[in-house]
Design a protein around this nucleic acid. Sequence first.
DNA 1: CAGGATCCCGCTAGATACTG
DNA 2: CAGTATCTAGCGGGATCCTG
Lengths: 146, 146
Amino acid sequence: MPTMTAAQQRAQAKLEYDAFLASCPSRQLLDRISDKWVSLVLAALGSDGPNPGKDCAGQPRSMRYSELSRRLAGVSQKMLTQTLRTLERDGLLTRTVTPTVPVTVTYELTDLGYSLHHLMRGIKVWAETHMDEVLANREKYDTRTT
Amino acid sequence: MPTMTAAQQRAQAKLEYDAFLASCPSRQLLDRISDKWVSLVLAALGSDGPNPGKDCAGQPRSMRYSELSRRLAGVSQKMLTQTLRTLERDGLLTRTVTPTVPVTVTYELTDLGYSLHHLMRGIKVWAETHMDEVLANREKYDTRTT
DNA sequence: CAGGATCCCGCTAGATACTG
DNA sequence: CAGTATCTAGCGGGATCCTG
């Protein structure tokens, strides 16, 4: 096993983690990012809300806590805070505290977070795009006489 | 109450579904596909396990229940069955029962499921790829004296 | 404004046992 | 083999109150 190309070594290193294995850390990571609020937070931070047409402008957008809270309709402060904390811990976003009169806290995606944003946004768009199809499939499934 | 404002109608027409809204069906769909087992099932069905090198060959791969059970280490029959049922109901995969001596059941992605597979696989790969980075970030976060 | 802390309910995931 | 059925513990997550 002496000769191994650099590419092979790199490939091996990449396969180091396998989310199919229960004990693999990447399984936990997958579980963590496979979360409704995570996907929505990332989607919100990655693109501006009011004008979704001009998406992926390049630079991440920063948002305040209250902005996020409003954008993600129905989220509780607990879940929002919790989600933001874990995302910050994982290095997906940064939390900036500005000591203004009432304190101002802004959140912004890191490069790492932005890389995931692209994927997550795709998931969200998929859900919105294929909603009709899925709905139709469910109806077919539920009304089959079999 | 039957009358809807013009703004509401326009909003409805423009972006029929918006996962940011709590009441939108796509929010539920997003929640459903934002699931550990969903992502793993889709990842498993989309590409062969033993030889992941020859990925995305074009036609979906069919797998038996027991195959999936083995591939997704740590999954309970309940969760696997439940996940497969909902995915079937949503039209993401097909369930085929072959009345052999011991009954044989195979699962296979539909075109719709395959379209999602690409995205989900990206998420899984992302988790495996950036695991080290995330782990490092966590350590930094936990050991900061601030 | 942006959370921290606490209580507590509900659903869900897991374990176990049974079946066609 | 490929599930279904049942029971239960655990915790995800909402509601509420409080703070810098």
